[in-house]
Amino acid sequence: MARTQLLETADEAVAGIEDGSTVLVGGFGLAGMPFDLIDALIRQGATDLTIVSNNAGNGEVGLAALLKAGRVRKVLCSFPRQSDSYVFDELYLAGRIELEVVPQGNLAERMRAAGAGIGAFYGPTAVGTSLAEGKESRVIDGREYLLEYPIRGDYALISAHHADRLGNLVYRKTARNFGPVMAAAASTTIVQVNGVVETGSLDPEAVVTPSIYVDRVVAVEERHYTVQGAR
């Protein structure tokens, strides 16, 4: 689809996500988490999903709510276990969800490879560890590497700060995290933003994700969630 669709509601934005899809979900903890799109996906009803995300949900909002609704078959993530990941923990310990742990940098680079048309790559992370089991390895210039395959999404659900009407995206601070790589790695990229601005009003030098990667955009109310301050 050439032109990015600007949609009125998050429900319209997630329409058509099929059962069994692989969905890349942005965010690092709560920063950059596309809450409204996930809530809409819960209402939409798609199930048997494979979710690729850095974490496996916090508290009972966002990804944790999707897990709690029983829609997720498998999670690929780097860091499921957190102080407030009890929804995932219970499902996992009950054997009701599959987990593939992927080192954080490999998670990012494997999605980057998918978006960049790379068939596979050799990376040094996890050599000699249990996460290397079953992977092809090769010594290049005296150093051992593991063969890593791309992670593609049928859909990406991400959050950005602003989009213009063409779908060019800018982010805010560390909420950028996985957004740009996921936008490129999915067949259909769906973005929630805090605001849509007129085309031409974003500085072209500052655009982080060009519109070519973006399929659907919806503006949402800025959500004020609580984060714990320093102790």
């Binding site: 276990r81 310990l93 987990l99 742990v101 992370t125």
Partner: peptide, 16 residues
């Protein structure tokens, strides 16, 4: 056996 594995960026940092 009952621990939930979580690696984060530790393996990438260790070799990087």
């Amino acid at each position: 056996p009952d621990a939930i594995p979580a690696v984060g960026g530790a393996m990438d940092l260790a070799i990087g």
